[in-house]
Design a protein around this nucleic acid. Sequence first.
DNA 1: CTAGTCTTCCTAAGGTCCATAGGCAAATGC
DNA 2: GCATTTGCCTATGGACCTTAGGAAGACTAG
Lengths: 189, 189
Amino acid sequence: MARAGVTVERLTRAAAELADEVGFDKVTVAALARQFGVKEASLYSHIRNAHDLKTRVTLLALAELADDVAAAVAGRAGKDALVAFAGAYRDYAKRHPGRYAAARMELDRETALRSAGGRHAEMTRAILRAYELPEPDQTDAVRMLGAVFHGYVSLETAGAFQHHPRDVDASWASTLDALDSALRNWPRS
Amino acid sequence: MARAGVTVERLTRAAAELADEVGFDKVTVAALARQFGVKEASLYSHIRNAHDLKTRVTLLALAELADDVAAAVAGRAGKDALVAFAGAYRDYAKRHPGRYAAARMELDRETALRSAGGRHAEMTRAILRAYELPEPDQTDAVRMLGAVFHGYVSLETAGAFQHHPRDVDASWASTLDALDSALRNWPRS
DNA sequence: CTAGTCTTCCTAAGGTCCATAGGCAAATGC
DNA sequence: GCATTTGCCTATGGACCTTAGGAAGACTAG
């Protein structure tokens, strides 16, 4: 039998692309096998199971997203950095909806530790540096920023903002203005 | 054959409870059939398909959540109302994680219109009344509030805040303080 | 180069779930 | 009391996940 040249890397890339095209939940071992022209069972020489495959896509997405955000915030500070971070985050989610969904999948403890999740937290803290928040307010602000970014993108992707004519980009810009103001006037505990 | 007394209502309730126990994505026609002691095929006399069943759980969850929030904000205004709204929202999500996940499922246009989604938007606008924001800022604020609430609950449920010792309730309170301040000092366009 | 080993792919098979078709019997309505 | 409707059944098939065991290509040591 001629070999199809399947590797974990190629599988993961194909799975990520498939996720962006048809949705992360529709990434199946069967669909990938079809794409590579092999039988489903063959893929189990490369991945442990379907969950393993999805986890790999998640790790890929988290790393890509962290790279994008890192590039965006490089050399910026304060509100500038905030807007760049948020823009890169939202852009990634819109360009790669399937990967973004993967990035939000729950990981088990050890996998989470070797993911790019830590870089995300670090970068968020870096943004807050200019606002000079002491702990624990800084941690609270990190959590709030994460909530706003993820929440906005998530609702937007789910079509929750489609029922009103107001431009979604404009609301986003306005939200970032409000966030900046909230961070500058953070209510100290 | 003795009848098992299956009805759409009982199915929906059982599905909602099952969702809270094992996760919304694990709510299956097969599992429900087992619970009711009937064959899978029998359920198709009551529901059209699995998606129909999930949609019913979604509508139930949206209505329950709207009721809870309405009860919480009744007779309150300003920051008081904001905190009550947010608290009811987050409590519901924690008490009913499966239902909450259902509430975030995307609905088709017509179904969304006859859902309690409209009440949610109205109540959010009601909260903002005290902050006296003109349009389109009010809409922007509605979107931001939705993003923060959903995003926070979503990240918390996914365990994203477990990697830091800071008390999650305290961060939540702090976030609401910041939101209140952001709404009071909303940057007018 | 050859023989052994590892890797990649296969067939076969069993499990879960979703869904439809067609039938029988209990419940309901006139 | 009889016809109709409704609720449940069996049978069947498709999609997906996964494991076991085997064959043949690819690599490696002697």
